[in-house]
């Protein structure tokens, strides 16, 4: 599966989110490719799951990827819940 972490520049919070997501998928034993991108690029990248803040989540909703809004980019618990919800619904 492909997880896309999105922020304004693909440089700050999305990278932090990527680190958190990588810890989570390793812990869960899931094979996934995690990429951090900026909002401008996000719509042209194919992904199964998009993790981002609530503002960008509403902008990115409606595409083929499942979009989950994350409040604390460093929270393993929050990202794990999002990934688990995604895996259970797919």
């Amino acid at each position: 599966m492909k997880i896309l972490c999105v922020c304004g520049m693909g440089f700050g919070s999305s990278l932090m989110l990527k680190m958190t997501a990588e810890k989570v998928i390793q812990k869960k034993g899931v094979t996934a490719d995690v990429e951090a991108v900026d909002i401008g690029t996000a719509e042209s990248v194919k992904a199964d799951l998009i993790l981002t803040n609530s503002e960008f989540a509403s902008q990115l909703a409606g595409g083929s990827a499942v979009v989950k809004a994350i409040k604390n980019m460093a929270s393993e618990a929050e990202v794990e819940q999002a990934v688990t919800e995604f895996l259970e619904s797919n």
Binding site: G8, M9, S13, K71, N72, S75
Partner: peptide
């Protein structure tokens, strides 16, 4: 330009640029 995307957690901002 991009909105307050630097809010990385509740009550926490991460100001940064390139």
């Amino acid at each position: 330009d991009l909105g307050p995307y630097i809010l990385i957690a509740p009550h926490v901002a991460l100001p940064h640029a390139r």
